[in-house]
Design a protein around this nucleic acid. Structure first.
Length: 393
DNA sequence: CGCATTTGACCCGCGC
DNA sequence: GCGCGGGTCAAATGCG
């Protein structure tokens, strides 16, 4: 009796497993189909966009960047739930109220009491790294010690903005601003500025290296496009990281955003809507935000596919670095391990829990900066969307 | 008591 | 020149 019961159980379990397998296969196929569709659409859009840009005598960046004072790019690690806020996704748009007001902060941040601080910060003081993450606590634990020195209610956002400075070393010039996103209170927006002039606790090195890498990236961009007319970002990126750069002759200022928020239902086209919407939301900080395919996200290959393989991105195909290999294998591993999670969640976990992963991200950001510098055609050329047809998969 | 946080005042840049 | 808004200071306060 028991034996037959067990057999029945095994049979039903096997049946169940087969059903699940079938379902899995079906979903995979659907996913592949959607991804293919999206890629086709994306390519069509890029072509159309480029044609229109040529027609108007504008580079794609100029289309968004009529201000020509700053530009803003977004590197996103998450998808925004507000598709249309497409807009909202990037840096400038994410802060319609201007919490991270990329633009105007040159003065105060610049006025260091300590003369030598200013000197040591000359190269990076205007580079900011903005991290968006869902967080219940008042601040994100980034491993550093911070002392709150001020709090302000900024116009248009009921949530106060808090000002912190690093207290690991008394002379450390690093500051951060923390504010909740007005649209989604669960999102904490942390903006770091400056680089630490002291050794950091291990737990803080990842974030610090990321911010400094981002800072150098921004600076490398500014060095390649010093004139106000050169408003193009150093590269076009279809990735989770959003890079924003603001620069002008008088107020060179750059912000790079890491978006760690998780959003389940992105529209495939929000990719490029980011382009325009942001600039009208925050005209002082026009945004170039080439978001990457949500499908790629869900497939777990966005970084690998979009940053390293996709010819739309700034990294030349032959630039296969250790970091890239590491990242791709890492992502692969992660996605296998956590197929139930969205990739964004997975990445968020990976970034927050694994310092080496973050370091790799930082290294990749640096690599991007280097690539942006080298490849002038991508950085400053009129074709800000690199050719798609050359080596696309 | 020492340190961190709070909060109103002040400074400065920018736009009108 | 004036008003506004963002950023910082520093005295007051709270907490361990």
């Amino acid at each position: 009796m028991d034996a037959s019961k067990k057999e029945d159980e095994i049979k039903s379990t096997k049946l169940e497993m087969r059903g699940v397998k079938d379902e899995n296969t079906r979903l995979k196929n659907q996913l592949q189909q959607i991804e293919m569709d999206f890629k086709i659409l994306q390519r069509q859009f890029i072509d159309a966009f480029r044609q229109q840009s040529k027609k108007n005598g504008l580079s794609p960046d100029n289309v968004i960047d009529d201000d020509e004072e700053q530009d803003l790019v977004s590197l996103r690690l998450g998808m925004n739930n507000k598709n249309d806020e497409a807009t909202g996704v990037g840096l400038g748009c994410e802060f319609p109220d201007g919490p991270m007001s990329v633009v105007k902060n040159e003065g105060p941040m610049k006025t260091m009491r300590n003369g030598d601080e200013e000197i040591c910060q000359t190269s990076v003081k205007r580079a900011r790294v903005c991290v968006r993450a869902r967080c219940d606590t008042p601040t994100m634990n980034d491993g550093c010690q911070w002392r709150k020195y001020g709090q302000k209610i900024s116009k248009g956002n009921p949530c106060p903005r808090a000002y912190y400075r690093c207290t690991v070393s008394p002379s450390c010039p690093v500051r951060k601003q923390v504010q909740r996103c007005m649209d989604d209170m669960s999102i904490l927006i942390t903006t770091y500025e400056g680089t630490h002039n002291h050794p950091l606790p291990i737990s803080a090195t990842s974030m610090a290296s990321t911010t400094s890498a981002a800072a150098s990236m921004l600076l490398s961009n500014s060095s390649t496009s010093p004139s106000s007319s050169a408003t193009s970002p150093p590269f076009n990126l279809h990735g989770p990281l959003a890079w924003t750069n603001t620069s002008s002759a008088t107020t060179p200022f750059s912000t790079i955003t890491l978006d760690l928020t998780t959003n389940p239902t992105p529209a495939p086209h929000n990719n490029f809507s980011l382009y325009t919407s942001s600039s009208h939301q925050n005209p002082r900080a026009p945004t170039t935000s080439l978001s990457f395919s949500p499908m790629d996200y869900n497939n777990g290959g966005f970084i690998y596919n979009n940053i390293f393989l996709n010819p739309n991105n700034m990294l030349p195909a032959d630039k296969t670095t250790q970091e890239q290999k590491y990242l791709s294998s890492y992502l692969e591993k992660f996605n296998q391990a956590s197929s139930q999670q969205s990739l964004t969640e997975t990445l968020t976990k990976a970034i927050t829990s694994d310092p080496s992963f973050r370091s790799v991200i930082a290294a990749v950001v640096s690599t991007m900066a280097g690539a942006g510098k080298v490849n002038n055609g991508i950085v400053n050329g009129d074709q800000h969307i690199p050719s798609v047809d050359s080596s696309s998969s």
